[in-house]
């Protein structure tokens, strides 16, 4: 297998007596969709917070693209190519779709310590933002104030904002949260298509989607990764079945 782009080694986080992340070790290789699954409260989002830099780890290390990023601030990780989307939609609700994405494009294009030239005149930014809006299925919706979008569309924009940073690796925290079946069906090819240009760490509750999309799956239970393997191997694992899959109905 190729050299990993993201390597997590013995990552640990405690909140008082609770061990939220317990010596987590796994990696994401270029061009793969690595899914992270686990029951509610397993510590998936806490893990993403540590990987994105929102929460400091107590022990362990995170290497990204050959560099140690364990103590790097969030915005520097994003600039290094590690971006994330949020489980709870976090967009700029008062801005239009295109203005949302322009911000992310602006962040990686030259300095924003520019005080004179009107941003509306920078057509390159807007052209690129429109192209990204199209990529995430929001063509024709560019000028809508994002707070007025349908839930599914807001989720698409949520993912679009992460992708607009042009990450090497993108962490999608439950991109399909709260989506209906039709909306999910639109999201699946979008995520699947990312494989060509970047790697994906996918946190998702929709098991159907996970087993269709993932190249590898890691199972997180009570802050520990109990198993990592191909979808077929995970499905066949007794340990996973006992700890997790057995408790919930698994489709597919």
């Amino acid at each position: 297998m190729a050299k990993p782009v993201l390597e997590v080694l013995g990552l640990t986080k405690r909140f008082g007596g609770l061990v939220a992340t317990d010596a987590v070790t796994f990696d994401v290789v270029p061009g793969e969709i690595h899914a992270l699954i686990g029951p509610n409260g397993a510590g998936k989002t806490t893990l993403v917070h540590q990987l994105s830099g929102a929460v400091a780890a107590d022990a362990g290390s995170i290497r990204f693209n050959g560099a140690d990023i364990t103590v790097m601030p969030t915005h520097d990780r994003v600039r290094a190519g590690l971006a994330r989307s949020y489980q709870i939609t976090s967009i700029f609700r008062r801005l239009t779709v295109v203005d949302n994405i322009v911000l992310a494009v602006q962040a990686r294009n030259g300095t924003s310590l520019s005080f004179w030239r009107p941003i509306k005149s920078e057509s390159a930014l807007y052209d690129e933002a429109r192209a990204i809006a199209k990529d995430v299925g929001l063509a024709g919706r560019e000028e809508i104030v994002s707070g007025f979008l349908a839930h599914g569309e807001q989720r698409q924009l949520e993912v679009g904002l992460a992708l607009a940073t042009k990450p090497l690796c993108v962490m999608l925290d439950e991109p399909m949260a709260g989506m209906g079946p039709e909306e999910s069906e639109r999201m699946i090819p979008l995520i699947s298509g990312l494989r060509a240009t970047r790697s994906v760490l996918l946190i998702e509750h929709d098991m159907d989607a996970v087993f269709r999309l993932a190249d590898r799956i890691s199972v997180l239970v009570s802050g520990r990764i109990i198993s990592t393997g191909t979808p077929a191997a995970i499905r066949a694992s007794d340990e996973v079945r006992r700890a997790y899959l057995g408790d919930e109905t698994v489709h597919g």
Binding site: H75, R79, L103, Q106, S112, S114, R117, I119, E122
Partner: peptide, 25 residues
């Protein structure tokens, strides 16, 4: 109306997300 103003106003709206798209807010 320039890039700088765009960033500052977006930080007012959602600072966490500005950080997460790569701005040292």
């Amino acid at each position: 109306r320039a890039r700088f103003g765009n960033v500052v106003q977006a930080i007012r709206e959602n600072e966490t997300r500005m950080d997460a798209i790569g701005f040292p807010t």
